[in-house]
């Protein structure tokens, strides 16, 4: 191995090793989790304004489907997401149907990568701190596989 490979490899080892560790200081993790919770609780409570608070006004949310066509990645606009939420598409009071596991995967200064496991799907969120407030700006999501 050439010596020049050693530095990136060492950096990579650090990055890989840190994935399972806490990726942010307490206040930052708390702020990111609070935003994710606005999203999850907003959905399960049918609370449109709370969902709206969590997301950037130009949110890009795209679904990854099994067998999806690369020219047709299903996209949900922020207004449609808020409307679906307010109409109660996800509303439930059953605690067993309100899964909301939040995991901060990585943070660098004003941006973060967060995973949220919902009852029926998984979201990968990119959050940005805009004017001092964390917001969800990009999302890809996919339904949980159907158990056979």
């Amino acid at each position: 191995m050439k010596p020049t490979y050693l530095i990136p490899v060492a950096m990579l080892a650090m990055a890989a090793g840190a994935v399972s560790a806490a990726k942010c200081d307490k206040p930052t993790c708390a702020a990111l989790t609070a935003v994710a919770q606005d999203y999850t609780d907003g959905w399960y409570n049918g609370d449109g304004p709370r969902m709206r608070r969590a997301i950037y006004d130009k949110l890009v949310k795209r679904e990854i489907r099994q067998g999806g066509n690369e020219t047709n990645v299903n996209e949900l606009s922020p207004d449609v997401l808020v409307n679906y939420t307010a109409q109660g598409y996800g509303k439930t009071d059953d605690p067993a149907r309100r899964r909301h596991d939040v995991q901060v995967l990585d943070v660098y200064n004003g941006m973060a990568m967060v995973r949220v496991d919902m009852q029926d799907w998984v979201d990968y969120m990119q959050m940005a701190r805009i004017d001092g407030r964390w917001q969800i700006v990009n999302v890809i999501w996919s339904h949980h596989p159907i158990e056979k």
Binding site: A15, I64, Q66, G68, V73, R115, Q126, N138, S142
Partner: peptide, 24 residues
């Protein structure tokens, strides 16, 4: 997770977060 991935790229001057998915 399945057909989705979350990736970070650490460069000398910036960090890129990438959301990657299987399409087509």
């Amino acid at each position: 997770d399945g057909d989705m991935a979350a990736v970070a790229v650490y460069d000398v001057s910036r960090v890129d977060y990438l959301q990657i998915g299987m399409a087509g």
